[in-house]
Each structure stands twice: as C-alpha cells, then as structure tokens.
C-alpha cells in the first residue's frame, strides 16, 4: 500500500490506518483512530483537533474506513467529528511520542 504525504502543502493528506513512511514514532506524537456510528466506520466526517482551551488546531476528513490522524504537541486534546448524520467528540491526553489511539462516535 502506498501513501502520499504532502509536506510542502497544507492540504489534508490521505487518511489511512497505516502510518505513512518516514514517520518516527520515537519522535512524533501521533493521535489516530476511527470515526464510527453504531459500530460502523464513518467516512467523509470532518475531524477537528481542538487544544486544551477548545481552540481549533487542525482538521482532516476521515477515510472511507473512518480513519484519521494528527501530528500534535504534548497536551490534552479534544477530537471532534462532524458528519451530516451527526456529531461527536472525545478527549485524549498525549504526554510523549508514540501512537495515541482515539475513537470518536458520531450520533
């Protein structure tokens, strides 16, 4: 499977469960997971990363399998998903490098 990472642009790269090549989990904090509704993946959701004060930080669109991913600084984060069928959010605390799993349910 090949994955494109846009490093010179600002647009949202393709969202996949598998990490793109070149991501060093010993250095980077990755928040990743799936958007679901009634246990089924929700693709095409707008997934927003909000900081500890609720301020917007980043947004991606979940893949057909509901996957999303953010590269973040240490801290407490809220991941909020918007979809035409409903919205939902969850919080995660990331203290150090590695993959921090996040699950968001929309209803």
């Amino acid at each position: 499977m090949t994955t494109t990472v846009t490093s010179d642009g600002c647009g949202a790269p393709e969202q996949t469960a598998e990490l793109p090549a070149g991501i060093d989990l010993a250095k980077e904090i990755v928040l990743g997971g799936k958007v679901t509704a009634d246990g089924a993946p929700v693709g095409g959701a707008y997934v927003r990363l909000l900081d500890a004060s609720g301020e917007f930080t980043a947004e991606v669109v979940s893949s057909a399998d509901g996957d999303f991913r953010f590269f973040a600084a240490p801290g407490r984060w809220t991941v909020r998903a918007l979809h035409r069928t409903g919205n939902g959010e969850t919080t995660v605390t990331a203290d150090g490098p590695g993959l921090h799993p996040v699950a968001v349910t929309v209803e």
Binding site: T6, A12, D51, E55, V60, F71
Partner: peptide, 17 residues
C-alpha cells in the same frame, strides 16, 4: 496555530513536522 507561532510545531498538526 499557536503552536506553530511559538515555534513548537513547524506545520499544522495534521502534517508531519
């Protein structure tokens, strides 16, 4: 974003750094 402004991050949080 504030983290890019302060120098903590070099790109938005949905991109590699």
């Amino acid at each position: 974003s504030p983290d890019e402004f302060s120098g903590k991050l070099l790109a938005p949080a949905h991109l590699p750094q």
